[in-house]
Design a binder for these strands. Structure first.
Lengths: 250, 250
DNA sequence: AGGGGGTTTTGAACACGTTCGAAACGTTGC
DNA sequence: GCAACGTTTCGAACGTGTTCAAAACCCCCT
């Protein structure tokens, strides 16, 4: 419900964002971001002009650009925050559950819920996120913190479930990243979803998670060894490196 | 090597493009498109201004807009054409091959080859293609012809192979669309690929096609019945409808 | 009090996609 | 020849994202 007022430094990336010289500048920054998010929700991304944001926030256009490299960058802050909120919400919701499929479903459903209010303009900036050169791309270096947070969540989805100990260690290592990719697919589905309250995406999650869980479960059996080994190799060699290898770090 | 001079009507969609009143206007249209493509290749999409295109083509900006609804629409023509060329090239290349995995690999490798010269600016307009509201989206109605062409190609990849008759009929029905989705993943990979000559994507294709073929092969065995059935249901109910159901049409 | 240095803020100016009313052109019928 | 009408072409003007040099502000030092 309430946005605003960044976790203060939590999402301050040393690499790209504006330099926070710590004082009321942080307040201005928050004000601008807050105003922008409100207008985005009210009118959509494209229809919200930088001039409108500045005017509404009571600052000059130039000032907005002092804090945010570009209009797109206004989104990164919100993106980080949502990831963080999602992780917290998902953890809380799956606390009492041990079943892997259920945990996975909860984690994904939680994302859909957290993102719900932004669905209106999500597609408009999804375009930007799809640009490989954009720092908004989920694969970019700038998105690394958010990605790491999400991957960590999926690690917990796994380790908190009863199938965790039964899995091949190497596969268990890869799974969090793979599940994150799975989330990316759900996000893609969600962006394109035009049904009321994105009901179709929710249904998609309900239907697909048990199957995903089943596949992972089956991977333990002897018959599947060769194919699982190949799949692992493929993902390890071709997918994760491109995606910004989170695996193997801490 | 040579672009230009649209197949004359071949890619004229009744829905969206400019109305060709048949005469030298078609020539102007082609001139503009041709010039645009050249400049895109030379300088990239973003760095090519409409003014530059118009100037270079020796027409006014307004004239360019008379033929093309927007800068993005300049791309659709080329997109259609490439799809067409790809289908032709792939067919020729896999003519003598019966092995499914090989045919699949050829079809995908052919795409990478056909797209090679556009890789430079592909990522810049890929952004637009990722917008669900854009007609450039591979899932949009406007892209339906191109999609249908590609799906048809994959149908032939399948029917021309020796495993075709052994497959469950229902699955065989779905496979062309699924393989097209596979191509979309390759495209995604390719867009993000920064290696010289997109060598990594080529390697990805070489490595992933045999595995895909193996999975499809395995689907015939009894043990996998339930999971294959679920997967089929999932794709049929949730993926294809969203994607613009080509399946079931002729 | 007065400077000096960094930080923050400003708004005019720029570039580019796009629009639009009007002009030029071409064809057809007289 | 010319008038009428649809098609094509033009280019000035608009809206918007972004830049930049200068001003305002703030805090510390002397």
């Amino acid at each position: 419900m309430d946005d605003s007022t960044e976790p203060a430094g939590a999402s301050e990336l040393p690499g790209g964002r504006a330099l926070p010289k710590t004082d009321k500048s942080e307040q201005t920054r928050a004000l601008i971001l807050h105003t922008a998010m409100r207008l985005f929700k009210e009118r959509g991304y494209d229809k919200t002009t930088m001039r409108a944001i500045a005017a509404e926030a009571g600052v000059s256009v130039g000032n907005a650009y002092y804090y945010f490299q570009s209009k797109e960058f206004l989104i990164q802050g919100f993106y980080d925050r949502m990831t963080y909120e999602h992780a917290a919400d998902a953890r809380a919701r799956m606390a009492g559950t041990k079943d892997f499929a259920e945990r996975l479903e909860i984690a994904l459903a939680s994302w859909v819920d957290c993102a719900a209010e932004y669905h209106g303009f999500a597609s408009q900036f999804f375009r930007t996120a799809a640009d490989p050169n954009s720092s908004l791309s989920p694969f970019s270096d700038e998105s690394h913190p958010a990605r790491a947070t999400a991957v960590q969540l999926f690690r917990e989805v796994l380790t908190g479930s009863e199938i965790a100990p039964k899995l091949d260690a190497e596969l268990a290592e890869l799974l969090p990243d793979i599940l994150w990719l799975y989330l990316m697919i759900v996000v893609l589905y969600w962006v394109f979803d035009r049904t009321p309250d994105t009901e179709r995406t929710r249904e998609f999650v309900r239907r697909s998670t048990p199957m995903a869980a089943r596949v992972i479960n089956l991977s333990r059996y002897r018959v599947f060894r060769p194919i699982v080994r190949d799949a692992k190799g493929l993902i390890q060699d071709f997918i994760l490196p491109t995606v910004g290898r989170t695996a193997g770090k801490q």
